[in-house]
């Protein structure tokens, strides 16, 4: 399936607006940016985390610490998958105890990635709250997990493919949906 067959669900402008709105929602709910830290899940959750921090800085003029996290060591399918995942570097170079921690990923799907991320975060300390921000919620949860901040809800079937592209990594900002029925 080539990129041409995919439906563009969000363009650059839509992504920018969603990030700005989420930034405002985070600030409103947490009464400002002082208590915040942001942790993005590699790869594109980390890109999104950097953008969210930038948006918050644009609104409140506060620099929020941003960390990034590889969740592969905490996956529940390591022993079921013949291919070992590549373990990349986690960098959380600040204290998360007592903070309002915004966990960021690009797409929320089964919830298993978020479960792994939560297990790992608990090993770093005890945040006051952990709140989940995603650009796309595509449904099909397999665990009792929900997002606090959602850029866009996209109804999908289980076998569809949702891809988030960011300019710094993929050349352009867009969210693409490839339908399984067209494959």
């Amino acid at each position: 399936m080539t990129k041409n067959d995919a439906i563009q669900f969000m363009d650059k402008q839509a992504i920018d607006r969603a990030i700005t709105r989420i930034a405002h929602e985070i600030l409103e709910r947490n009464g400002g940016a002082e208590s915040l830290v942001i942790v993005g899940i590699l790869t594109r959750g980390a890109d999104l985390a950097a953008r969210l921090a930038q948006a918050i800085n644009g609104i409140e003029n506060v620099v929020v610490p941003v960390g990034l996290m590889d969740i592969n060591l905490y996956r529940d399918d390591v022993n079921y998958n013949p291919d070992l995942p590549e373990v990349r570097q986690t960098q959380i170079l600040f204290d998360i105890d007592g903070k309002n921690l915004i966990l960021v990923d690009d797409v929320l799907y089964t919830g298993r990635t978020i479960r792994a991320a939560l297990s790992q975060l608990i090993d770093f300390g005890r945040p006051r709250t952990i709140q989940l921000a995603v650009l796309v919620d595509r449904g099909h949860r397999q665990l009792p997990i929900r997002a606090d901040y959602v850029g866009k809800n996209i109804p999908t079937s289980f076998d569809d493919d949702v891809q988030v592209h960011f300019a710094e990594r993929d050349g352009s900002d867009e969210v693409l949906l490839s339908l399984a029925v067209l494959k």
Partner: peptide, 21 residues
Amino acid sequence: TAESFREILDRPIKKVPPLRG
């Protein structure tokens, strides 16, 4: 891979689960 594991040694809880069991 060792570069990624080196960071774990600087964490407050120096333990990860991949070889559980």
